Amino acid sequence: MANRVETYLIPVLFEALQEDRLVTVATVDGKSGGPAIHTISWIRAFDENTLRMAVDSRSRIVENLKHNSAVAIHLLANESAYTVFGTGTILTEKAAGVPVKTAIVEIHVSEIRDVMFYGSKIVSEPKHEKTYDEYAAKKLDEQVLEALKRGADT
C-alpha cells in the first residue's frame, strides 16, 4: 500500500527489526551539508517509537549526528519499502562488553512512510553474509546486540 504514513512502528515493522536486517541509513553530512548514505545491519526496534543501532565509533554516522540529529532509515519489509524518519542521539561512543569501539545510537521515530512505487511489491528481500570468521562474527553480533539492549547503560 504505497504512501501510507505512520508515526510509530506498526507491528510488522517492529517484528522485522528484531532480526538481522540490511538497512540504509541517511544522515546529513557534517562537512558538506549534503546527504550521506550508509549501510548497516546492527539495528533493532527497541519499542514502537525507538530504534537503536550500533556503528563503528569512527563512522561518519557518528560525526554527522553530532552536527545534525536528523536521520532516515530505509528498509525493505512486509513486501514493501519504508522510510523511517527520526532524530538520532548518540548514547555512547564506546559500548561496554564489545571488543571493538562501537557507538550506540538511539533514534526517536517521528514518521514512517511506505515509499514503494504504485502497483508493485518486494518479492525477495536482500540477504547478506559476514565475510570474516563465522564464530567471531556470531560472537561479535551477540555482544553488540546485548549492548543495544542496554543502550545508555553501556
Rank of each mutant, 00 (worst) to 15 (best):
V71W: 06
V109R: 09
Y82R: 11
I122W: 13
T7N: 09
A96Q: 14
I112K: 06
E111G: 00
A72T: 10
E125N: 07
V5L: 06
T24S: 13
E129A: 07
R21V: 06
V84T: 05
N68K: 10
T27D: 12
Y8A: 15
E79K: 14
D29H: 03
R44S: 11
I61N: 01
E63R: 12
A136W: 10
H128T: 15
Q18Y: 05
L75A: 04
E79P: 01
K101I: 11
Y132S: 04
T87S: 14
S32M: 06
S120K: 13
T50Y: 05
I37D: 00
A26E: 08
V98R: 01
D20A: 08
Q18R: 14
F117W: 10
E19W: 00
N78Q: 03
V55K: 01
L91K: 03
S59F: 00
I40S: 02
E6R: 05
E48G: 06
I37T: 03
T24C: 06
A81H: 04
A36N: 13
V115I: 14
A96T: 13
I37S: 03
E106Y: 05
A137V: 03
R58L: 14
V123S: 14
V109F: 10
V23K: 05
S120I: 08
Y118F: 13
A136H: 13
F14T: 05
E48W: 01
A77T: 05
V98Q: 02
T87R: 13
S120P: 03
H74W: 00
K130W: 14
T27V: 11
L91E: 12
E63A: 02
S57W: 01
I107V: 15
D133Y: 00
E79F: 14
V109N: 12
A70G: 08
E93C: 00
D47L: 12
T83C: 13
A95S: 06
L91S: 04
V25S: 02
T131W: 05
K94T: 08
I104A: 03
H67N: 09
S41I: 12
A72S: 13
G30Q: 07
I107D: 14
T89G: 00
L17I: 09
H128L: 14
V5P: 00
S32T: 15
E125I: 03
T89L: 01
Y82S: 08
L9E: 09
D29F: 02
R60F: 08
S32K: 07
A136V: 14
A72P: 01
P126G: 10
H108C: 01
V84L: 07
V55E: 06
T89P: 03
L22Q: 03
L51V: 08
G86S: 08
A95K: 09
G88D: 05
S57G: 06
E125V: 10
G30E: 11
T92A: 01
V100D: 03
D133E: 04
V84K: 06
